[in-house]
């Protein structure tokens, strides 16, 4: 009798064909509304994937429910469009069973932070080797325009005609608090930055979380326009780069410094002296937590990598325990059935 083995080793062959963006475009017609920010995320993902050098049969995209969660249908990879909020549970099981696969989770602010909030916390604390992309448009789009857990306080929507009475969650702050080991933010409009963030996230070992500010031009058009429009972007957003001082503005003339634990804007900072230097590799989340509090209009909105650290990976540890147990002697069915006290009747 053969002992159980993982049926497909998924070993990457040396003579891997060179893939291009087109190899990752499925035959399905994309059905997002014209002008939706999702198109940009799809395009950057398809552009980035060839750089990973992973055969496409080893790539899996798993999503929940919502506009963003249609994503797997448009990818020429393995794809699973699951149920509302639960994509991370399927991804955790798949990755734990088959650690050699590269698994992406596509979710939104409703799917990932409302109905699926609990799973997000636990996937992060476990540090499962998954890349999670959360499309944050601050609205429920597929159900046609109700407020979401990231909608700003007081927002008027179809389900809040008098304005919401709830405060929003900040996805980055949640990720940091839950112990995510790679935490980044990008925006649909800045395609180069978005592609770079997706690439870095995919390269990270352990859980990587990318919040993408994504415009819903039907139900929440212009949600990020105040700081994301091309003309104002450099003055109203700050690009985080590890080891570099926080500078922004058309000529990088402005900076951010800390006064105790309180951030302050330094207009026309001539020198880097005294400016806050970003350290994404800090084990401690205090600095990242201060950065995530920066928001327009008092501050430029930070995008980039907030945190990028190494930590033991859940699915590796599970695999390791199994391998160590097998190394001491593979389980024998007859022996286990006869374990404990037995007696023979003649």
């Amino acid at each position: 009798m053969t002992a159980p083995t993982v049926p497909n080793s998924g070993v990457i062959s040396a003579d891997l064909p060179i893939l291009t963006r087109k190899d990752f475009v499925s035959d399905q017609e994309v059905r997002w509304c014209p002008g939706c920010g999702d198109y940009s995320i799809l395009a950057q993902m398809q552009k980035m994937l060839p750089e990973l050098n992973v055969p496409k049969e080893n790539l899996v995209f798993i999503s929940g429910i919502g506009c963003s969660s249609r994503f797997p249908y448009y990818m020429e990879t393995y794809g699973f469009h699951s149920i509302h909020g639960r994509a991370l549970t399927l991804a955790t099981g798949l990755k734990t069973a088959r650690p050699e696969l590269k698994v992406f989770v596509i979710t939104g602010d409703g799917d990932g932070l409302s109905i699926g909030g609990n799973h997000l916390l636990h996937a992060m604390r476990r540090n499962v080797d998954l890349t999670v992309v959360l499309f944050n448009n601050r609205i429920y789009g597929l159900t046609k325009g109700q407020y979401s857990p990231t909608s700003e306080f007081g927002k008027v929507t179809k389900s809040s005609p008098y304005g919401t009475t709830e405060r929003p969650l900040n996805p980055i702050r949640i990720a940091l608090a839950a112990g995510a080991t790679f935490v980044a933010r990008s925006i649909d409009r800045d395609t180069k930055h978005l592609e770079e963030m997706l690439y870095q996230a995919a390269q990270h070992k352990g859980i990587s979380f990318v919040e993408v500010y994504q415009n819903c031009n039907i139900f929440n058009d212009g949600a990020f326009a105040a700081f994301a429009e091309k003309e104002v972007r450099q003055d109203r957003m700050v690009y985080l780069e590890h080891g570099k001082p926080l500078r922004y503005g058309k000529d990088s003339q402005n900076g951010i410094r800390l006064n105790g634990f309180t951030p302050e804007v330094v207009l026309d900072a001539a020198s880097d002296d005294g400016l806050l230097v970003h350290n994404a590799h800090n084990q401690d989340i205090t600095l990242a937590n201060i950065l995530v509090g920066l928001d327009y209009p008092d501050f430029p909105v930070p995008i980039g990598v907030f945190r990028d650290i190494d930590a033991p990976v859940f699915d590796d540890l599970v695999q390791q325990q199994v391998e160590e147990a097998i190394a001491k002697g593979r389980g024998d069915l007859t022996a286990i059935l006869h374990s404990g006290e037995t007696w023979v009747v003649e």
Binding site: F80, T89, L90, G93, L94, K95, A97, R98, L101, H119
Partner: peptide, 18 residues
Amino acid sequence: AEDEIAAIGATIGAAYGG
């Protein structure tokens, strides 16, 4: 798992993985 739903979700993921 963190809850009953995650338990079956992960199991579906593993079944999908063969």
